[in-house]
Amino acid sequence: MNKFLSLLDKEFKLTIRNYYLFIVLAIALILILVIRFVVPSEINMEKSLYLYPNKEAVKTLEDTNYQNLENKSTVFSSKEEVIKAMEKDYNSLGLILKSNNGEAGFELITQGYENDDIINMAIVDIQSYLGRIEFDDSSQVTILREGSSLENIPLNLNVVPLAIMLESALMGLFLISVMLILEKDHKTIKAFVTTPTNVTLLLGAKLITMLLYSFLSAILIVVFTVGVNVNWVNTLILIGLTSIWSSCLGLTIANLYKSLTSAMMPLIIVSLLLGAPVVSYFAPMFAPTYLKIMPTYSLMLGLKEALFVSGSNTMFLEAAKFSIFLVIIFSASTIMTKKFATGKQ
């Protein structure tokens, strides 16, 4: 135990004197500032509607919701004025109401960048105001996965699970690789292996150091963005497991390479792969299997559950199981490759 405490003491002294702690705190501070002050809590997706209502057409719409449509539109007195206003406002649509043989018709004017889905949704929306589509109480919405909706979470806070997961994973991956490669480069590990202490203990101390830094960073980010009312146990379990498997992965990579330069390419590739599921996080409809099998996918969703207390543990349990599996796999790979680090052949 004393040996391990000495190793931890050494790792803390080295990481503090090499400014690693400063880097961790600086990144946490930047993320807090970005989440609090740069990313908006919501993005206004609504477009302005510029309307020219033909009087003859309006007369035929007395029994419809047309008035509500007019209330949320800006009304102009000609089609030309509508177009002129649209040219000044890129986030707008134009609607020209027309009379066709005593019935109301319409012409939708778009900016040109809208895809078919948006145009079709706008047409359905307009038609509902014009009494062409009726909604009644028999219509029902069923949610398949409770808690996976981003709707009720402010946009900036939605970034928090992503930020703490990636910082924990990438910090584990990169910093621990640098720590081990420097030991090899300075040949201090060669001096260490001529002591009666096992190298596994040295790697363990590095791993625990990274774990504590991950906790520190995650706690700071969560407290200063989401607040204290989160499921801390689940959050710290996931952050801890992420830190451990990513550190083991970092150690495995560092074990295989002699210099930081040669290890950099595999580290960058692994980082990009780990970051790829971010796409699915923000666009849940796009979740192909090759993104879902990335450990970071379930971790982000698990952390979202833990941070925003949805009452569901489904994703947390999935992420925790996956992470435990990875901890076992990567610790085994670290132990198997550690002989390269010590120079034993």
Binding site: N18, H186, K190, A191
Partner: peptide
């Protein structure tokens, strides 16, 4: 056994005494 290497393989960010104290703590 004790091994003195030709390379100066000590922790450069630690002081002389910290290097020796750390190394001493690794022995049984």
């Amino acid at each position: 056994i004790g091994v003195s290497f030709e390379q100066p393989n000590v922790y450069k960010k630690l002081t002389g005494i910290e290097n020796l104290k750390f190394h001493a703590s690794m022995y049984s």
